[in-house]
Design a protein around this nucleic acid. Sequence first.
DNA 1: AGCCCTATTTTTGCATGCAAAATTCGAGTA
DNA 2: TACTCGAATTTTGCATGCAAAAATAGGGCT
Lengths: 221, 221
Amino acid sequence: MLHEEVVGRIRAILLDGEIPPGARIPERELCDRLQISRTPLREALKVLAAEGLVHLLPHRGSRAAKLTDKDMRDLFEVCQGLEALAGELACERITDGEIDEIATAHASMVQHYREGDLIQYYRGNRAIHEAIVAAAGNPVLSGLYASVTARIRRARYVTPMSPQRWAFAVSEHEAILNALQRRDGVGLSHILRAHLRHKREEVLQAGFAETDGSELALKIA
Amino acid sequence: MLHEEVVGRIRAILLDGEIPPGARIPERELCDRLQISRTPLREALKVLAAEGLVHLLPHRGSRAAKLTDKDMRDLFEVCQGLEALAGELACERITDGEIDEIATAHASMVQHYREGDLIQYYRGNRAIHEAIVAAAGNPVLSGLYASVTARIRRARYVTPMSPQRWAFAVSEHEAILNALQRRDGVGLSHILRAHLRHKREEVLQAGFAETDGSELALKIA
DNA sequence: AGCCCTATTTTTGCATGCAAAATTCGAGTA
DNA sequence: TACTCGAATTTTGCATGCAAAAATAGGGCT
């Protein structure tokens, strides 16, 4: 198994919440599961620590990172900046074909909205945001965006929405598509920022800051 | 020696160009120099690879990353976005005391300009940009900024400037300080973007894309 | 019982060793 | 001389083992 694959698999385990935020990362257990020894596992953990997904405590092992409200706010803030930049750049560089693809994805997402399928709606939603970032044609930007969005993915794409809020989010997406089709970079960047600001308020209001295992147990109980 | 220290020291070696871009990273030699074994060294190299400072080639070791013109453009583009965001946030959050500190740093930088001391000018310049980012009060942003700017540091703060260009850069900095003092976030973000765009054009025009050891040898010869 | 101090166990962090892959070197050929 | 093919050497990637630190358990004390 390649180094990048190890990193990817552990990342997935963390993002899925299989190891809940704040919980200790069972080194030995992961070694057994991934069929690797401690050396490559620990290499991967250090990389994930640099990404912010893992906290390393000297001589005390590693824990799945736990996001506070402040972390969440900071991450959304940066995400707004990155998507705004991506929107502007995308409008300069996107091809007609790519716009058509996004329009198709948009239509499909709206269909899921009409059907009330939140899971599929979120899936399409995320694909659109990622397509816009990809259209910016800047791999550095794509990389930072991937790293930042990974950390807020669950909050962003799991939080339930009120019918009003959902309807409004869809209308924002209409505006996003529209600005993209007009290649209005400044307009698109403003809409994206507002769109994400709203999402952030929603997430924080829902109290989605991550808890450690014990608090989680309390919440579930 | 702590893990973070190992990463830091290797990063410094790479940023100083002691191991030139494109050159092979001599594992054994670094082990001797840092007085550590291969295990912690390799952990650090994987982290630096995730940061983009090192390229890992499976079964072929690691090399100091080499920036192409495109990489440089992409990095500056993202840097523009990050500084613009930082400028807006800073105007919302910066204290009067912090503004005074930046004003002092600015005055000192202008003095270095008058004295024609480019090295000291760049040092002060960098301190101001970093202070603005710090004033944004967003550690996630600060982290990404640090990582992006590290990669373009040499290009950004080493390229010589024509007298006209230097004078203009100073005038841009006057405007930056002014916007900050007026807490004009939108204005500041525009100035910062333009400022960085000009710097990027300058750097690319100077042909600062990084070369590998052999090309470097040719340039020096 | 509650608390603290010590002995045992577990876990961490790193050096080392070994198999596999890649690179280098050299002999043989054209 | 230039080139190719193959053996020797070096380097990489990982499993393992060991010393040090931390967590845990247990016994004695108040």
